[in-house]
């Protein structure tokens, strides 16, 4: 029992019940509430409508409103599960959950496969990898000759595309990441293990002490 009179749950559009979200993810109820504090801050940075649009997402990621960015767009699309052009709170928590250290490796592998399957064809195709490589080079202001890019692609497909059909299917991807575990590093955010300490202000703002976790 908490010390305060319960005032009921926050009524915010798209604010799914933290208890339900906690039951579906590796987060505790308190952590879901902490994520809501973060979500509120991101979702009100440009338009205060309680939803994260692409501009707000990019702003949160890069601290500036960069131009179109292939990777940020792709991550946004994977967070925007319902394809509404905005990320609601439930989408946000469930997508971040994939990056939780305690989430099974298979979920991370699935997410990374979708991330790189730019055209959602069920395969990671050579031209998609080339497109991402070129985007990375532009982003990091690195220059590589086209033949060097083709060499990198050749080597990658030699290792990953076991059946030599010019595209990487899901089972080839599974085997490839097992052999190259460093590729999954981006799929884990150690931060997420203890999220409530990341948001000291949250302790004063939330109703968490009233909720059984």
């Amino acid at each position: 029992m908490g010390c305060f009179q319960s005032t009921g749950r926050r009524q915010v559009p798209g604010h799914e019940d933290p208890i339900v979200l906690a039951s579906q993810t590796a987060f505790t109820v308190s952590e879901v509430e902490a994520l809501f504090e973060l979500y509120k801050s991101i979702s009100s940075s440009v338009i205060d409508d309680g939803l994260i649009n692409k501009e707000e997402f990019q702003l949160a990621l890069f601290k500036n409103r960069k131009k179109e960015n292939l990777f940020a767009n792709r991550i946004f699309d994977l967070f925007d599960v319902k394809r509404k052009g905005v990320i609601d709170f439930g989408d946000f928590v469930r997508a971040l959950n994939v990056f939780h250290p305690n989430v099974p490796q298979e979920d991370k592998i699935d997410f990374s496969f979708k991330l790189y399957d730019l055209d959602n064809t069920g395969y990671i195709e050579r031209q998609e990898v080339k497109q991402m490589l070129i985007a990375l080079l532009c982003e990091s202001e690195m220059k590589l000759a086209d033949e060097t890019i083709e060499m990198i692609l050749d080597k990658t497909f030699l290792d990953a595309d076991v059946d030599k059909d010019g595209k990487i299917d899901k089972s080839e991807w599974d085997n490839f990441v097992v052999k190259n575990p460093s590729l999954l590093k981006i799929m884990t955010l150690p931060y997420l293990r203890d999220i409530t300490t990341t948001f000291p202000s949250f302790v004063f703002n939330s109703e968490v002490d009233e909720i059984a976790t």
């Binding site: 940075s45 990621l61 601290k63 960015n69 990777f71 990198i152 990658t156 290792d159 460093s182 590729l183």
Partner: peptide, 25 residues
């Protein structure tokens, strides 16, 4: 050196994948 790396190792270095930035609001 980039040539000795596979494409995905390079791609995964994109700062866009650094979702920790989301937590620095």
């Amino acid at each position: 050196r980039p040539v000795s790396m596979n494409a995905f190792e390079l791609i995964s270095r994109s700062p866009s994948f650094n979702l920790e930035n989301l937590f620095e609001q």
